[in-house]
Write a protein that binds this DNA or RNA. Structure first.
Lengths: 163, 163
DNA sequence: TTCAATCCCATAAAAACCCATTGTATCCCG
DNA sequence: CGGGATACAATGGGTTTTTATGGGATTGAA
């Protein structure tokens, strides 16, 4: 498959008192080039203490991939159950939120809790999708490469906060 | 794979007060022959104290390679984590910057610090990618061949600066 | 009413854009 | 072969546009 437009780069944005966050312009650019939606899909990340985010076009693609996988491995009861589980996670456990004309979303409270997002949201492009972190949790995770933590620290410094 | 257009040659350009740098025309030529983007991707070099740079087409190619690797080795939890880490480094730890009609980029502050780039940027073609150095750091690195340092010194002399 | 989401407007900083200058290499023509 | 004329690269500076973000005002459902 391979998508031609990939999410890349990092940014640290504020979450204001109303729970609004600006989606960095360079990520919005990719979303709007992939499709014409001004919307992102949020989910808890599978392995890290952060949120995973992507555009509706990618969600559709992901769904198609699951369908194909099912058709291939079918007949096994295990496979069918696994499909049901994955499907639930892919759709029921996600939230789709539009961003407004200034590029901001209202972070849904449930996702905010799941991602433990506080006053600051660290956006990280990861190719097909991007991640949203509480920067402190990223710094605390031993599985994250040091070079990436340096970037998080730089983004925090840039803002004047001491990390 | 093998790309047909390769980066080669060297140039020393100024970084102005706004942080702008001209990408040498001979490198831009390669970028635009590889794809139609007028954009470069910047990353910290893995082994040297400089930046690594390439075009989006090369980045996509690298990504596709990673994807194929994952599908082959999948299922292992270790492999999955390693994949996540690589993806983060390849995308979150890089920045994509467009160059304008006069061939200049705005060097992102984070990359400028990571590469310790001051007022001068030394561009070195290395085939599939190219490097951007603080010329002084190149001269100070014992791992760099003397012949290459001579080239750096020549570029500095050309400019009137004493190396 | 009340809380919360959406819309609208304001602003400061940063980035993108446009235009001008210089220097150098190239070309053309006498 | 010399000497302009030309084209393009690199760079400086100003102006406009975009971004991120704050703060009302309005809508709407509970």
């Amino acid at each position: 498959m391979a998508l031609e437009h990939l999410f890349q780069g990092s940014a640290l944005n504020a979450v204001d008192a109303k729970g609004r966050v600006s989606i960095p312009a360079f990520l919005r650019g990719v979303i709007e080039r992939r499709g014409d939606a001004r919307t992102i899909v949020l989910a808890k990340h599978e392995t890290f203490a952060c949120l995973s985010a992507y555009d509706p076009a990618y969600a559709a693609l992901k769904h198609a991939k699951l369908e194909r996988l099912l058709e291939k491995e079918e007949t096994s009861p295990d496979a069918a159950l696994e499909y049901q589980q994955r499907n639930l996670m892919a759709f029921a456990a996600t939230e789709e939120v539009p961003y407004d004309s200034s590029g901001r979303i209202l972070m849904p409270p449930m996702m905010r809790r799941k991602g433990q997002i506080g006053e600051l949201a660290l956006f990280l492009g990861t190719g097909e999708t991007f991640q949203i972190w509480n920067p402190q949790l990223l710094l605390d995770d031993p599985r994250i490469p040091d070079d990436l933590k340096d970037i998080a620290r730089f983004r925090l410094d840039e803002r004047g906060g001491t990390a």
